[in-house]
Design a protein around this nucleic acid. Structure first.
Lengths: 332, 332
DNA sequence: CACCTTATGCTGCAACTGAGCATAAGTGGT
DNA sequence: ACCACTTATGCTCAGTTGCAGCATAAGGTG
């Protein structure tokens, strides 16, 4: 039964035409404070923000360990929950001129922390992710920037080659739901990619050397390399995941009120929820239990402080916060 | 607004302690024929099956393109639907002795085809994936092998160091649901990893040089390298995904009956469904439309032939086959 | 104390789910 | 022609869940 003798043959030779690749580990570290979703970025003078990242090194026993080491080193932050996000490696994704030098891979991870340490104590900054994606925040209703986006995309469509137009129209409708579809919070990545393709975000001009004037840009703070795309990937993934896994609690402190929880979900998903139904859902799924304490910091009637019921991980395999009653209208 | 001048600084030096890595692209190509889920494997005499794979090369403009090229070259099969699955790269995952030589990365992809070409016309074979994971098929009720698995896992638990026991017990319960939890079809990867850790699958002895006797093994056909783990990852992902995205149709021919569709879903998920409710769900979600044709190959009353309604991709962003009415008991 | 704020309980309706019953329309055998 | 068997398809019915809003509770502030 043992196949030890054949193991040597199973390993492939390293030579055959395969250029060795440079591999980076990159982290999207998310927290939610003050009802805003935050991402950890490194700021360097005169450059766009970048995500914590560094090359995979031979003393990293696992990819995840390497990632944790880099984040800790660059930001002093020790990560808890971590999951692999995506591996980026298309030729020329960092710099079209470098296309000949082989592949630059980035293995991106998503990490969730309920860190509230002020930025000053870290070697990095927390950045509101809607600074990079202003069109993704619908908590106050349709963001004004959507008008501009719609106009620019229609313009792009009109100038598209006939062959490409049909497909692009469908993709736009899918991503932004201008006509019938309506807004889908999970499509953040598709939206960013469309805007990129249409040359409406700053990163696009790095590749095409300024074909589109800056005045036509649609906005959102750019990031270095393709890090804004990586962040968009993380947002899409996270918005999807909170609906079927209780990952939201990774962002919460030990004790919190139901409204705190709701605000955090809303911050990530970018939409507002129906309050009473949200509470009923959370209670019915048994996601939380009483701490017995009360919070007086509500500004109104004191609220019960609850904590996450870890047992649900066993009981309800698919428990998440299923965004009940997404409001179509802004309350008040 | 242009930051072209700073681009050079944004690129990181390649040197800094980073050993260049060897990168493989690997494909889990899935089809479903004869009501069995199949995976495409390469057979080599005297060796375990392996997945189609090959090194990332400098003429691959994108990772996905490289993957398609390798599969086509090794199997003559041209892929349609493809998505990235996971990147594996822990040190020593292929061969513990090779730990010093740097990282071997595998970027794994999941591909779905509705290929029914007989294996003879391909340079590869279709393998029923339950040959590798006999415990994952609950369509005929609880598989007999579960008794053995439960016994061996309890044994492993009893021999575990006290510190590890609590956590392992929880993980076993989560993955297999022996006590209260019940079976969760999506936890295929967790189950394989537990069996591996407990030394109950053949691949584990490659690493530990036969600490566990073959007679204690729990079964399932092994694969080369860590390809069975990659396959388990694909199964988990696919079982989850069919519930919220209409990917199942990538596996179907143009026209099919509702029972065909149900059997395919059951084949992938490994559980049986309530027939009438399944139809109602599929019709209500508007996933299919009439072709007008009938199928006479049913063995009973002829069935309507339907086709996938591509429009749902636009209309219902989260349409999938949500496994309604999973039967607790075997029908008949 | 009037009035603000937020918390929390409850109700009614619509839609969906799970399980099963009943009937339709083929096949093959006698 | 009739029977047994197979699969397709229509329908019911009760329990659950989702959506939306109303009402009340219990803090704070001028």
């Amino acid at each position: 039964m043992s196949d030890l003798p054949s193991r040597a043959r199973l390993r492939r030779p390293r030579a055959t035409g395969a250029a060795p690749s440079h591999v980076d580990l990159a982290a999207v570290v998310v927290s939610a404070t003050a009802e805003q979703p935050q991402v950890l970025v490194l700021e360097r003078r005169g450059e766009d923000d970048s995500l914590p990242s560094g090359p995979l090194a031979s003393d990293h026993r696992t990819l995840e360990a390497g990632l944790r080491a880099w984040v800790e080193r660059q930001t002093t932050l020790r990560l808890g929950y971590v999951e692999q996000l995506y591996t980026f490696g298309d030729i020329g994704r960092l710099d079209p001129a470098a296309a000949a030098t082989g592949h630059d891979l980035s293995i991106a991870y998503l990490a969730l922390v309920h860190e509230a340490r002020p930025a000053a104590q870290l070697a990095a900054s927390w950045r509101d992710w809607y600074a990079c994606f202003p069109w993704e925040d619908w908590r106050g209703g349709r963001p004004p920037i959507m008008d501009r986006i719609e106009a620019r995309l229609r313009h792009w469509l009109a100038r598209s080659a006939k062959a490409a137009r049909e497909g692009r129209m469908e993709r736009i409708e899918l991503a932004f739901g201008f006509e019938a579809g309506g807004w889908n919070d999970e499509r953040a990545l598709e939206r960013y990619e469309l805007l990129y393709e249409a040359g409406l975000v700053a990163e696009a001009t790095r590749q095409t050397a300024g074909k589109v004037a800056a005045s036509h840009m649609v906005g959102g703070r750019p990031m270095g390399l393709d890090h804004r795309r990586i962040l968009a990937t993380a947002i899409s993934r996270l918005r999807g995941k909170i609906k079927y896994r209780p990952v939201i609690f990774e962002l919460m402190p030990d004790a919190f009120t139901l409204l705190d929880l709701q605000r955090t979900v809303e911050a990530l998903s970018g939409v507002t929820l129906h309050k009473q139904n949200f509470r009923r859902l959370v209670e019915n799924e048994g996601l939380v239990e009483e701490t017995g304490e009360m919070s007086e910091a509500t500004g109104g009637r004191p609220a019960r402080l609850v904590r996450f019921r870890r047992e649900v991980l066993r009981e309800r395999p698919a428990a998440g916060v299923r965004l009940p009653g997404t409001r179509r209208t802004v309350p008040r």
